[in-house]
């Protein structure tokens, strides 16, 4: 790496209209995107919420005032007090500590789904779009079948078959959420497969897999990232829904949806037990929605 000049000229280096290297051009593009993104106040709030989720998850044992599994039956269903900021649940466990540790589960679910479903969709969509013909027809038919199912119901059926648990919930969500990515990647592929630079690569003797991997997939990434961020709110809600129905994370894991289910019996008297985890789900999924909206404005200005 070349040494960057001292500030404030690094800004000039980034914003120059005559970049000297590919890296400089890329960083300059990223910088321009960041500048546009930064002006969007809502998107910045979203980014802060998502970053806060990551920090809380990383530092959970340090931040939590109590152990998430420590029961104290003498102090069960206590309203919020100085000792327990968000009150205690039916086993006298500190709700705040459980929420903080639950951030790890939420982040894990989001990360696993975000790393699997878009990748599956990317591969299927680009291959279908590039190959065309019967490969395209067959792959898109499969995609349509999965799209024809309501997501939550299909996830329910999968979890019913695989057995409840957080891993199976992740698998079920990933299986049900790849089709829109495949559609998107295919549409992007169709618009670029006849471009001159693809023909040039082919004439130079590049193989099909090489063109798909090296030339088509990178161009699909931007729109897939936006779509993934926007979908993460839905993933969080589906995972919480599965947890609420008792099909996701099993007790005593502090999964937010399962915590709402546990507080359901007492919701009319001890409302905080169910209200607090729901608030956490709401804030985090709002964060992803705001972030996704902002990213869409920066990366994909066509879509209103």
């Amino acid at each position: 790496m070349t040494r960057q000049p001292q500030s404030p000229s690094w800004r000039a280096w980034l914003t120059t209209d005559t970049p000297q290297s590919r890296a400089q051009a890329r960083l300059g593009r990223a910088w321009a995107g960041w500048c546009a993104f930064r002006r969007n106040r809502m998107a910045m709030i979203g980014l802060l919420i998502v970053l806060a989720l990551v920090v809380v998850a990383a530092l959970a044992p340090l931040l939590a005032p109590h152990h998430p599994y420590d029961q104290d039956l003498a102090n069960r269903l206590q309203p919020p007090t100085a000792g327990h900021w968000l009150g205690t649940d039916g086993f006298g466990r500190d709700i705040l500590s459980r929420l903080i540790h639950g951030a790890r589960l939420t982040l894990m679910i989001v990360a696993l789904v975000a790393l699997t479903a878009p990748v599956i969709g990317l591969v299927i969509g680009t291959v279908a779009g590039y190959r065309g013909g019967w490969v395209d027809a067959a792959l898109m038919r499969v995609t349509d079948i999965f799209l024809a199912f309501p997501k939550l119901i299909l996830a329910l059926a999968f979890v019913a078959a695989l057995g409840p648990g957080i891993e199976n919930a992740v698998i079920a969500i990933a299986i049900t959420s790849w089709p829109p990515y495949a559609r998107l990647a295919r549409a992007e592929t169709l618009t670029i497969r006849h471009a001159d630079f693809i023909s040039a690569a082919r004439l130079q003797g590049a193989s099909g897999p090489r063109i798909v991997l090296g030339h088509i997939m990178p161009l699909c990434v931007a729109s897939l990232v936006v779509r993934t961020t926007l979908d993460m709110a839905g993933v969080i809600l589906t995972a919480a829904g599965l947890g609420f129905l008792g099909l996701g994370a099993q007790p005593p894991l502090p999964e937010w949806g399962a915590m709402i289910a546990a507080g359901r019996q007492n919701v009319l008297e001890q409302w905080w037990v169910a209200a607090m985890p729901g608030l956490a789900i709401f804030v985090v999924s709002l964060g992803f929605n705001l972030l996704g909206d902002g990213l869409r404005d920066v990366l994909d200005p066509k879509g209103d």
Partner: peptide, 13 residues
């Protein structure tokens, strides 16, 4: 962004 089952519970409350 709000989980629908949570909204339901809060609505009942």
């Amino acid at each position: 962004s709000a989980p629908i089952f949570w909204l339901g519970l809060m609505g009942l409350l």
